[in-house]
Design a protein around this nucleic acid. Structure first.
Length: 558
RNA sequence: GCCCUCGUGGCUCAAUUGGAUAGAGCAAGAGAUUUCUAAUCUCUAGGUUGCAGGUUCGAGUCCUGCCGAGGGCACCA
């Protein structure tokens, strides 16, 4: 990878100056005029040694000479800028042509396991647009790590256990008017909402709900039967949404899966002496955080108990080197507590547990509350997106075959891209016009760029052979420079759990490609045809692969 | 009350984790269609990064205070 190459050059230069190695960074240059990559090494060193950064930069610069650089420059406050040579850019292009979709991916001999816990929908609750973020971002993280040579396991930790089922069972028993298997998810949600409305007037209902959960945990037959049916109904409906999204998660274990292990978790915690009794409940006291409760005073378990059981189980069974939780930011404190508890219990170092929080989705008018019935069902959003895409196809290209299929790819791609193009942790304002935007920085823009490239390739009769590399137009070189950034971006995105870096990159690449496309003839080119074809092919490969990582399909035609 | 996020053109978001002249898209205005081309391209306009201090070669990013928004604070998940 280019980062290592440049770092090696710099480290060697520093060694020759007899300076201890230290940490510095290589970045993609901010502007074309600043080269392809930049390093802050001289400025860091200047601070350490209390010297002038520009002087140090030029000393280091003099020591670096290699054919992969066209030139190396010192600029600004002391940056060292690296301009890649045409020869190197050509080599990278050849690499793309050879490795195809594997370009930028790594093969590792020793495969480490990474678990991604994402989506986490709740039974008997709507699959809302909030879960979309976890699902789509989680899947992208999953795909990135897979690409980088890890063994990745996806787990949909569904909320199918807990006191909310006590509430639901109470509501069904109290107001239910049909056979349990005849309820739809929407019915169950309305019952859940009704419970919250009524329990505000009658707080004693909450105690009754807790008792129902206690019975459920103890194996009460009726409670189990109702619970089972609710799970079945919900999963069936969720499957429809997952299939629309084209997402398939490796495992759906869910909270109830850990139910048989909860006793052991509590016993182990007692044995290891990390717990305390407090007001009848069992808690794990933590150094700098509020204590984590693992058993209620009535003896029933909590979300935290099941999360701990999940960690214990995952560590024992899969020996992961990393567990990534793609869950909402409102659970930040909870995960800090759980991670620290898991370390106290000696199961895993907390550094190996990562919470990637996603921001909330809010309405322009304010926040949404499921309990108050302010819900936007994901299915409605997806259907609306497809409908809008269909409308546009009808207007622009009415003769297209398979309109429905293509509208689905475009509409759903737009919705996914909308979520993936901003940083996971930012709150998103839900806006129909933005989420279904099909122009500019949007999913369809990338799909369109990719299709344009593929269309050229389809029409081309020439065989792809890249021999001589000579850039005659700036658009050619700019595109080549953009293409070689891909492996760097992929690694940074995975490292920082930020699929949006890939989105941003693909958008830039598309812009660069579109500009090339407008200005440079390829099929009718009189010069440099093989180079141009190679550029087009490389761009299409990276766009397709990048979109695949984001979970976005590219249609055959639009 | 305490803790955690966040505050960037009219709107929605970036900014490689302390770096260079704060970048895009939408919306607004001007232009491009005998072509592999319009879900596109080119150009214009739009900014005291919530406010006030501080740290240093250098701050949207770090520290302090204030204002504003959101979230969390043991028997919910």
């Amino acid at each position: 990878m280019i980062e290592e190459k440049i770092k090696n050059f710099l480290n060697k230069a520093v060694k020759e100056l007899r300076i201890e190695p230290f940490d510095f960074s290589i970045e993609i240059s901010k502007e074309k005029d600043y080269g392809d990559y930049s390093s802050n090494i001289a400025m860091i060193l200047a601070k350490k040694e209390n010297k002038n950064p520009l002087e140090i930069a030029s000393i280091i610069k003099e020591k670096i000479k290699d054919k992969i650089f066209e030139k190396v420059e010192v600029a600004g406050p002391g940056f060292i800028n690296f301009f890649l040579s045409d020869e190197y850019l050509g080599e990278e292009l050849k690499k793309v042509l050879k490795e195809k979709k594997e370009y930028g991916c790594l093969k590792r001999k020793k495969k480490e396991t990474v678990i991604v816990d994402y989506s986490g929908v709740n039974i008997a609750k709507p699959f809302g647009i909030g879960h979309l973020r976890s699902t789509v971002i989680g899947q992208a993280i999953y795909n990135m790590y897979k690409c980088l040579g890890y063994k990745v396991l996806g787990d949909n930790h569904i909320g199918d256990w807990g006191t909310q089922f006590g509430k639901l069972i109470y509501a069904i028993k109290e107001w239910g008017d049909k056979k349990i298997q005849d309820y739809s998810v929407k019915d169950l949600v309305s019952l859940y909402i009704k419970f919250h409305e009524e329990s505000e007037k009658h707080p004693e209902m909450i105690n009754e709900a807790r008792q129902w959960f206690e019975r459920l945990e103890k194996g009460d037959k009726e409670a189990r039967r109702i619970w089972k049916e609710c799970v079945k109904t919900s999963l069936k409906e969720f499957d429809r949404v997952y299939s629309m999204l084209g997402i398939n998660i490796d495992m759906t274990l869910g909270e109830s899966f850990y139910e048989p292990m909860l006793k052991d978790v509590v016993e182990e915690a007692l044995e290891k002496g990390v717990v305390q009794k407090s007001q009848g409940a069992l808690i794990i006291p933590l150094k700098t955080l509020p204590p984590l409760m693992i058993l209620k005073s009535d003896g029933s378990t909590l979300y935290s108990t099941r999360d701990l059981a999940a960690i214990r189980h995952r560590v024992k069974k899969f020996k992961p080197s990393l567990i990534i939780y793609e869950v909402g930011s409102e659970q930040s404190l909870h995960f800090k507590q759980v991670f620290e508890s898991a370390e106290l219990l000696g199961w895993i170092k907390k550094e190996k547990l990562v919470h990637v929080p996603h921001g909330l989705i809010r309405l322009k008018t304010g926040k949404m509350s499921t309990r108050k019935g302010e819900i936007i069902f994901l299915q409605d959003v997806l259907e609306e997106a497809v409908r809008r895409a269909e409308e546009i196809i009808e207007r622009k290209n009415p003769d297209l075959k398979e309109k429905k299929k293509i509208a689905k790819i475009i509409g759903i791609g737009a919705v996914k891209y909308n979520d993936l193009s901003s940083h996971p942790s930012t709150d998103i304002i839900f806006d129909w016009d933005k989420i279904l935007n099909l122009e500019g920085n949007s999913g369809p823009y990338l799909q369109y760029a990719c299709l344009r490239a593929k269309k050229i390739l389809k029409k081309s009769k020439t065989k792809l052979v890249l021999k001589k590399i000579e850039f005659t137009k700036k658009e050619e070189k700019n595109l080549a420079r953009k293409i070689q950034q891909y492996p760097f971006v992929l690694e940074k995105a995975a490292e920082s759990f930020s699929p949006n870096l890939i989105s941003n990159y693909l958008f830039d690449l598309s812009k660069e490609f579109n500009s090339f496309y407008e200005n440079i003839p390829v099929l009718k080119a009189e010069e440099n045809k093989s180079l141009r074809l190679s550029l087009v092919y490389s761009a299409s490969l990276i766009l397709e692969k990048g979109l695949e990582i984001l979970g976005i399909e590219v249609p055959e035609e639009i």
